[in-house]
Computed example of a mutant assay.
Amino acid sequence: MQFTSTDIEQVESTWQQFVPSATLQDADPRRFRFDWRSVEAGSMSLVRYELAAQVHSRAEPEDQLLVCRVDAADARIWSGRQSLDAGQPWLTDGARVEAKWDQVARVRALIFDRVAARDAVRQITGDDRLELRATGLTPHTREDGARWERMFSYIDGSFGAEGTDPLIAAELGRHALMLTMSVFPTTFSESLDRPVQRMAAPTSVRRALSYIEENAHLPITVDDVAAAAFMSTRGLQYAFRRALDITPTEALRRARLEGAHRDLRHGKGASLTAVARRWGFSNVSRFATMYRETYGINPILSSR
């Protein structure tokens, strides 16, 4: 799809076809001009547009992974209280990201269906338990950000005006997903750094991990986890260290942090303190530090 428009409502409704949460706020209709190009390739969409206007935009995807670069001389980009580098692309799988500019912005974005992306990385890693998440908003390095931009240009140029063969489109989509997942902090990029043993943990460890995932919201202890895996606590600690290079306590803490992250994102809780305590974090300051280190943003309770 490709068009030019000066109609703010048309532009916003078009953008929302790809990212339902996207909004264009405070747009100046007196100098609004929008040049749009988009391509859909299976579970991935590519969007490129130029927008001349004073604009405040916002996106908070729910069932998608959104990767975006706002190229504008006066752009300001942020998520919660965290300012983002306007010279770099950013990735969100739920965190609200906002941008403002007053002149002209060139925006490039890839949108991936979250479930399809998860299934793809499970197939590639061989880990059918891998939950795909962004663990940070910005690329690992500035060079990684440049790699993503080169990839976007290549993908964009590969889709012809008359469409692309489905097989080629599928390969382009896979290439885009894999590079995106590698250059940004994600559970997929973390899995690439794992030792081989972690991908083939013994049955006892897998049983313990399943028990943790199913019961992290309950007041279980490491002793309970060991009992569920039919092992002694000492034996479980050894097995975890050998297979995963972490302790059962760390695994339980990570699962509870993920639970708190979900509740905050969906506004489930009276306050940040209440959510932290529900998931076993009595020290809210320490919880905030762990959350920031894991997800790249400060913990904020969504108003939804």
Rank of each mutant, 00 (worst) to 15 (best):
S5P: 13
T6F: 06
T6L: 04
E9M: 04
S13M: 14
T14M: 02
W15Q: 13
Q16G: 00
P20S: 09
A22Y: 06
L24F: 12
P29L: 04
R30L: 04
R31I: 05
F32I: 11
F32G: 14
F34A: 02
S43Q: 08
M44L: 15
R48P: 04
R48V: 01
L51F: 00
Q54I: 04
V55Q: 05
S57E: 12
S57C: 06
R58T: 07
R58M: 06
P61H: 01
E62A: 14
E62T: 08
L66W: 03
L66C: 02
V67D: 09
R69D: 01
V70I: 15
A72S: 09
D74R: 01
D74H: 03
R76D: 12
R76T: 14
A86H: 14
Q88Y: 04
Q88F: 04
P89H: 03
W90Y: 15
E98N: 03
A99D: 01
K100L: 05
D102I: 05
R106P: 02
L110F: 12
D113L: 02
R114W: 04
R114K: 15
R114S: 14
A116V: 02
A117C: 04
A117L: 08
R118C: 09
R118F: 00
A120V: 08
V121D: 12
R122N: 07
Q123P: 04
Q123K: 10
T125C: 03
T135M: 08
H140I: 06
E143L: 12
E143D: 11
G145P: 12
G145N: 10
A146S: 14
W148R: 10
E149W: 08
E149L: 08
M151W: 13
F152E: 12
Y154L: 06
Y154K: 01
D156Y: 15
F159Q: 00
G160S: 13
T164C: 11
P166D: 06
A169I: 06
A170W: 00
A170Y: 00
H175R: 11
T180H: 13
M181F: 11
M181Q: 15
S182W: 09
F184V: 04
S189H: 10
S191C: 01
L192N: 06
P195I: 03
P195W: 02
Q197C: 07
Q197T: 15
P202G: 10
V205T: 06
V205Q: 11
R206D: 08
L209K: 03
I212A: 00
I212C: 00
E213V: 09
N215S: 13
A216Q: 07
A216R: 13
P219N: 15
V222T: 13
D224A: 07
A226Q: 02
A229Y: 07
S232K: 07
Y238G: 01
F240L: 05
F240A: 04
D245S: 14
I246R: 10
I246Y: 03
T249F: 14
E250G: 05
L252G: 08
A255Q: 11
L257D: 03
E258H: 11
A260I: 03
H261E: 11
R262G: 06
H266K: 03
K268N: 10
K268M: 02
G269F: 13
A270N: 09
T273N: 02
T273M: 00
R277K: 15
R277H: 14
W279P: 06
F281S: 03
F281N: 01
R286N: 12
A288S: 14
M290W: 03
R292P: 00
E293S: 08
I297D: 00
I297M: 01
P299D: 07
I300E: 15
I300L: 07
L301C: 09
S302P: 12
S303W: 05
S303N: 10
